[in-house]
């Protein structure tokens, strides 16, 4: 299924996966692997199920009434939807950044420290260290180091989004899911987020949902194309954008629909 799979280490493996909102089926039998230390982009028109898919990878859809899944999702071989699995622990390993920046109504410092505090970390020096490290990793440190105790809402939209990334990094996840992280940002902020993703890819496995095909082409190593709840094609990004196997993929990336 995967021409380059010998060089890729699968981190999250999805097999015959279907998702339902009540009686509506949002995903149909998806087979897919997200590989370690790669950026995987998911593209497709609105309503194609790519966000549902992304949110299924850290069980964020658990709170949607009527949501249920069939099939298998494994993280390092561990079944995510097994009854014995605590979704809270999964979300500590698989972090998520959302479309709209959603900092908490706290100081910049406390925003980044939140994930550690809920894990019971109390030591001020440990917190300070990790907050600084995370803010540096999110390329925000220089802009906020003098006002860590200032409110998070005093930051610009792009800064807020990088703060949310720093917040996600602070709990040291293995995988970071990005749900259209730049769609609410201006081009300069978007560029910074994209640079940041390249920096992060050495240490993290990243999956990004995007509406912006140029963005997918720029940032990702592998791209998956979703349409009407099915996975049409997944391959190396260069292949998808230059020589797709499926005619529907070609129609979409050349702008014939969507």
């Amino acid at each position: 299924m995967d021409p380059a799979s010998d060089t890729l280490v699968p981190k999250i493996v999805v097999k015959n996966f279907s998702a339902f909102y009540g009686s509506v089926q949002a995903l149909h039998n998806v087979d897919f692997a997200i590989c370690e230390r790669k950026i995987t982009a998911m593209i497709g028109p609105s309503g194609c199920g790519k966000s549902t898919f992304l949110r299924s990878l850290n069980r964020m859809n658990d709170f949607v009434p009527g949501f249920r899944v069939e099939g298998s999702v494994t993280l390092d071989g561990q079944e995510l939807y097994a009854p014995s699995v605590n979704p809270v622990l999964i979300r500590q390993r698989v972090g998520m950044v959302f479309q709209k920046p959603n900092p908490f109504q706290m100081s910049i410092f406390e925003n980044v420290a939140y994930g550690l505090r809920i894990q019971g970390v109390k030591s001020r020096s440990v917190l300070s260290d990790i907050v600084e490290k995370s803010l540096r990793a999110a390329a925000l440190w220089d802009e906020v180091k003098d006002r860590l105790n200032g409110g998070a809402f005093s930051l610009s939209g792009g800064q807020q989004q990088r703060l949310c990334i720093a917040r996600a990094l602070a709990v040291e996840p293995e995988v970071i899911l990005l749900d259209e992280p730049a769609s609410a940002l201006d081009p300069i902020s978007t560029a910074r987020i994209e640079e940041l993703m390249q920096d992060l890819k050495d240490r993290y496995t990243i999956a990004i949902v995007t509406h912006n095909m140029q963005q997918a082409a720029r940032v990702s190593d592998r791209t998956a194309f979703f349409l009407d709840g099915t996975l049409v094609e997944v391959n190396e990004t260069t292949k998808i954008f230059t020589n797709p196997e499926d005619s529907r993929t070609e129609d979409y990336i050349t702008g014939r629909f969507g």
């Binding site: 809270v88 972090g95 908490f104 939140y114 917040r167 709990v171």
Partner: peptide, 27 residues
């Protein structure tokens, strides 16, 4: 309380109770 706020906390691995006590009620 905006859903994005609640999801933000849960996505960081907060339990439902931690989210309610630390974020939803203060908000």
């Amino acid at each position: 309380v905006p859903m994005s706020y609640i999801e933000g906390a849960l996505a960081l691995g907060a339990s439902r109770f931690q989210m309610v006590r630390g974020l939803a009620i203060p908000a």
